[in-house]
Design a protein around this nucleic acid. Structure first.
Length: 778
DNA sequence: TTCCCTCGTATTTTT
DNA sequence: TACGAGGGAA
């Protein structure tokens, strides 16, 4: 095993028994350390592969790790457990199924299946789906599950109205999942944790089997994941976690950054290794990254360093609107230096909705691109429809699959028939499929529908028998044939695309390798394993950096990847950071970490763009540069305005861009109501110092904060002129452009992060960011 | 039952 | 914009 390692990396690889925390900064070679460590355990310590468990967050990361370990060893290690938390939890639940209320053929409900089940649960719990948002309830239940709070426990501590509503839905939802023999995503983790902790025989067996536990991206673990890891590792203590608190970006999904911050307390005697040498980016890029992230409070202090020569300055570019933003970037890609192809560039955005203009511009320029995310393959309607048939063949109890499959293609079974069938099934305590089989004998089921139901049930049972012996591909083929799927799609408007997707499903199924999921000897059928892996599939899993084309993806998907040229786009207040994240320090810090992740993807060049106007929900709103831009250091950054005023952008590329430039510059158009994102109605008093008439903004160095040397020499946005006579103290009266007159109750934070809690004339208390609210004295 | 239209609301991010 | 839900007609 020959691998070039620096001293810290080597220490992390060679450190012996006991807990080990590797704080690995972006681009510091953490995957290298992790894989080298596993290879060393196998090769030099003679550890057997089945005694090692390595956990990641995406299937892609697991695949990379597996491949690299194989490279180091020169052979594929058999028996090694490498996988995502979710897939490993699913494997555990499958193996130990006889101890649980669910059979090993359980269905995994993705988010929209889960949402449907929540809606049904709300009906069953007699809760108005108009009054309570099913999404909100689902999020609350998800949070509870990730925190390992059961329905009973939840009910016991539910005080506010929304919690009380949730407390009624939660048990009903659990009943639906149980009788459907299904788990949602969160259940996989929660039940794995309960199984390991609650059944000593099982917990002991796995804890002693896995003598070494390694966890990648530890900063993104939630409580359930933490408990799984802890149960497996606390006795032998051979746990190695790798992570970077600065790259924790999944707090919204229950990830708890404290898991990594408190590792040394959880596992006393832990060795800590810091990897701060970066092998990816230029000093200019790293300086920007270091400087911006230093504004976070919840972090372990560290600084990335590199030995690379300085490199080009980071460019911050202002453009009139998102189409100009896209055209300008396409021009950069076209005009890039020799030797640089489309595949060297990545466009990173905050939300998937931002991909459109880039797709359009790249298509116009005839540049190949690939897009990660958006509407996921396995979530396309026609794919979900086909999968519902297969799912039902595997798991006859699956109510969601039944409802979905029986409703399409149309066979004369609609809402009424389905409801009657449900009632009849409940009376007899059988599942929907069993009830359908004898539909004509059931009271209340219309005769026409009953006939169809019986045919349908017969078809599913034939499919089910086939699944025991045939390959997944054959089962899908037969499913499509016998239920007339393609025929039904042909009648649809965009049928051709959908048929193409179904064909792709066949291809995906035929290339599925069950050994990626489970030992070849496991009892599960190929179809069962395929369906479970499809449910746990992420778009990024298909990403292959050897394919040609510009990459478009969200910042979340970009974590762990690197590109020679990175375009960080839409860096505007309210979009990045998102408006709703600006209300709390924790969420704002998470947005900043996301920004940091974006910056540190870049090897050689980094472009950060923001637009003056942007379409949102079908109307155009004014946009202001993100406060993150003000946090960038001055030295390694170059600012350009290609909007209007100074150097207006006349997009050489397209007439559309030219038109956009003219519009912005000519002033022929009445200034739109300005204001924050997401609310075109919000009028602005022009408070925050971004000049409002559509002209380019003023960068100017402003008031350094004495208390904070880090502020020195930074660019700042000046909002003093509009607010100099604003009394920012409790008791003061102010006027908010949208909410009207208000009384300040309290003020917190400082500088741009100053927030005021204000009681407005409508009697509602709100917390507003002073720098952006446009407050005026009353 | 199904189809079609209108209307309202939503976008973070993903296993 | 764009999708889902709900209402009304065939």
């Amino acid at each position: 095993m020959k691998l070039a390692l620096n001293a810290e990396q080597r220490h992390a690889v060679e450190y012996g028994a006991g807990p080990l925390l590797v704080l690995a900064g972006a681009g510091s070679g953490k995957t290298r350390v992790l894989t080298a460590r596993v290879a060393r355990l196998l090769q030099e310590e003679g550890e057997r592969p089945e005694r090692i468990l390595a956990v990641t967050f995406t299937n892609k990361a697991a695949g990379v790790m597996r491949d690299r370990i194989a490279d180091l060893l020169g052979e594929e290690p058999r028996g090694l457990w490498v996988g995502t938390f979710h897939s490993i939890a699913a494997r555990l639940l499958r193996r130990e199924g006889d101890r649980l209320q669910r059979g090993a053929n359980f269905t995994i409900y993705a988010e929209d299946d889960s949402l449907r089940a929540i809606k049904r649960a709300m009906e069953e719990a007699d809760l108005d789906t108009q009054r309570w948002s099913p999404n909100l309830i689902r999020a609350r239940i998800s949070d509870a599950k990730n925190a390992l709070v059961s329905a009973d426990e939840y009910a016991a501590s539910a005080f506010d109205l929304a919690a009380k509503a949730t407390a009624r839905v939660y048990p009903a939802y659990e009943r639906i999942l149980a009788r459907s023999n299904a788990y949602d995503f969160d259940d996989l983790l929660a039940n794995a944790a309960r199984l390991l902790e609650g059944v000593p025989e099982v917990g002991d067996r796995y804890a002693s089997r896995f003598r070494h536990v390694l966890v990648d991206e530890y900063q993104d673990t939630n409580h359930a994941q933490y408990r799984i890891v802890k149960r497996l590792a606390v006795e032998h203590g051979n746990i190695c976690v790798v992570g970077d608190d600065d790259q924790s970006i999944y707090g919204w999904r229950g990830a708890d950054i404290r898991n990594i911050l408190d590792f040394e307390r959880d596992f006393p005697g832990a060795e800590v290794v810091r990897l701060e040498e970066n092998y990816r980016s230029t000093p200019a890029i790293l300086e920007v990254a270091n400087e911006v992230i230093s504004n976070n409070r919840d972090r372990k202090d560290k600084r990335l360093r590199t030995r690379r020569p300085a490199g080009e300055p980071v460019q911050v570019v202002q453009l009139p609107d998102e189409r100009a933003e896209a055209s300008w970037i396409v021009e950069q890609i076209q005009g890039a230096e020799i030797g640089r192809g489309p595949q060297d560039h990545v466009v990173l955005y905050r939300t998937n909705a931002q991909s459109r203009p880039f797709e359009d511009a790249l298509r116009r320029a005839r540049i190949a691109y690939r897009i990660v995310g958006g509407v996921r393959f396995y979530e396309r309607r026609e794919i979900k429809d086909v999968l519902a048939y297969l799912q039902l063949a595997v798991n006859p109890a699956d109510e969601a699959a039944f409802a979905r499959a029986v409703s399409w293609p149309r066979r004369g079974v609609g809402g009424v028939t389905l409801d009657r069938l449900r009632r009849a099934a409940a009376e007899r305590s059988v599942n929907l499929l069993d009830a359908a089989e004898i539909a004509r004998d059931l009271d209340g089921v219309p005769p026409g529908g009953a006939r169809s139901l019986e045919d349908f049930a017969a078809g599913i049972s034939a499919l089910s028998e086939l699944a025991c012996e045939a390959t997944t591909e054959e089962v899908i083929r037969e499913c499509i044939r016998s239920f007339g799927i393609v025929a039904a799609l042909e009648l649809e408007e965009d049928g051709a695309d959908r048929i193409a997707n179904v064909t792709e499903l066949l291809a995906a199924a035929s290339s599925f390798d069950r050994t990626d999921v489970e030992d070849a000897t496991a009892e599960a059928t190929d179809l069962e394993l395929y369906l479970q892996s499809a449910a746990l599939h992420a778009d990024i899993d298909d990403y292959d950096d050897r394919e040609p084309g510009v990459t478009l993806m969200t910042l979340h998907n970009a974590k762990g990847l690197e590109f020679p040229v990175v375009y960080l786009v839409g860096v505007e207040e309210g979009l990045f950071p998102l408006a709703r994240a600006m209300e709390s320090r924790e969420e704002l810090e998470e947005e900043r970490r996301l920004f940091y992740v974006g910056v540190t993807r870049a090897e050689d060049r980094l472009f950060v763009t923001h637009a003056n106007r942007r379409w949102r929900y079908g109307s155009e709103v004014r946009a202001e540069p993100s406060s993150f831009l003000a946090e960038m250091p001055e030295g390694p950054v170059e600012h350009r305005s290609l909007a209007v005023g100074g150097g207006r952008y006349r997009g050489a590329g397209t007439s559309r861009a030219r038109a956009a430039g003219r519009r912005a510059g000519g002033g022929t158009r009445a200034p739109r109501e300005s204001g924050s994102f997401g609310d075109p109605k919000r009028a602005s008093s022009g408070g925050a110092g971004w000049s409002s008439g559509g002209a380019s903004f003023d960068w100017h160095r402003g008031g350094r904060r004495q208390a904070e040397p880090a502020g020195e020499g930074k660019l700042r946005y000046d909002y003093s002129d509009s607010q100099e006579d604003l009394r920012l103290e409790s008791g003061a009266r102010v006027v908010h452009p949208r909410f009207g007159d208000g009384l300040i109750l309290s003020v917190s934070g400082e500088g741009r992060l100053t927030r005021a809690e204000i009681e407005f004339e409508d009697g509602i208390r709100r917390k507003v960011m002073v720098a952006h609210a446009g407050l005026r004295p009353a």
